[in-house]
């Protein structure tokens, strides 16, 4: 039964000021988008040719050059090794860096900012740019690739691991300390067990990212399947390119599966 309702009270989720603020926010987002579009001078004039070009590319890629497979197995294995070696190297550097960059384990303010600085520098430089640097330092080849992978991963792992360390229950750490444990023992008994699942999960996840990253390292001469891909693209050998892409897809899928499975194992 509906009765007469005296609608004396009104309710609004946002007051006038906040509504205006939200409107301005959306407006700014549109202006930025439009501004970027205009600056880059991106016309959509060639729209009608897009389907034709795609069709053309696909027909030149098909059928993938299966005979090319024996030639890319070696570089592919090299790619996976670069990722593994880079991740392992990153892990060795990351643990001390993360301890420095976590507020509750860093010795003092200076070391804290040092930790943060390492993480930020590592993160702000793309893997491919690190690779360019290390190709100059070590010469072209997989070593430069692996070091590049490691340097980029330190930022990723260091940031996330230090956040995990900041989240730990410090009571457990105190109890270990109260028993007369040394600083290293406090780390291995009080801190490490608490961040172990995160440590394993993050490294496997990073390895998975690194497998993908290392496929393009060859573009700048840092080893792996990218060398072949780069060559094939430059030679317009589209059937070979297609074969490489398929093989990379397979490897990435497998690594993603392994990564997901491992992370589920560790609790």
């Amino acid at each position: 039964m509906t009765s007469e309702v005296d609608a004396a009270r009104t309710w609004e989720r946002f007051d006038r000021r906040r509504r205006l603020g939200r409107f301005v926010g959306v407006l700014v987002a549109f202006v930025v988008f439009a501004g970027s579009w205009a600056f880059l001078d991106m016309g959509v004039t060639n729209v009608e040719t897009v389907p034709r070009e795609i069709n053309d590319l696909l027909s030149r890629m098909f059928p993938p050059d299966v005979a090319y497979v024996p030639e890319i197995v070696g570089p592919l294995i090299e790619t996976v090794h670069i990722a593994a070696l880079g991740t392992a190297g990153a892990l060795v550097i990351t643990i001390p860096v993360a301890l420095l960059a976590a507020e509750n384990t860093t010795p003092n303010a200076a070391t804290y900012w040092l930790g943060k600085l390492i993480v930020t520098v590592s993160r702000s430089v793309n893997t491919i740019i690190w690779a360019l640097v290390f190709v100059v330092v070590f010469g072209s080849g997989p070593l430069a690739g692996a070091v590049a992978i490691a340097f980029r991963s330190v930022g990723f792992l260091g940031k996330l691991l230090s956040e995990e360390i900041e989240e730990i229950d410090f009571g457990q750490v105190e109890a270990v300390r109260a028993a007369g444990a040394s600083p290293i023992q406090v780390l291995t008994y009080g801190v490490l067990p608490q961040v172990k699942p995160a440590l394993v999960g993050l490294s496997v996840y990073r390895w998975d990212i690194n497998v993908r990253d290392s496929t393009i390292l060859g573009f700048v001469g840092a080893g792996g399947i990218g060398v072949q891909l780069f060559r094939a693209v430059n030679a317009f050998a589209w059937q070979s390119v297609a074969m490489i892409l398929i093989v990379i897809l397979g490897v990435v899928l497998v690594s993603e599966g392994v990564s997901a499975y491992t992370r589920r194992l560790v609790r």
Partner: peptide, 22 residues
């Protein structure tokens, strides 16, 4: 401790042996 402050992810034995770390 009040909240036990045991290292949750370690075994009972590992926690007890923590008392011998010194």
């Amino acid at each position: 401790f009040q909240e036990y402050n045991l290292v949750e992810r370690l075994t009972v034995m590992e926690n007890v042996l923590t008392g011998r770390l010194g």
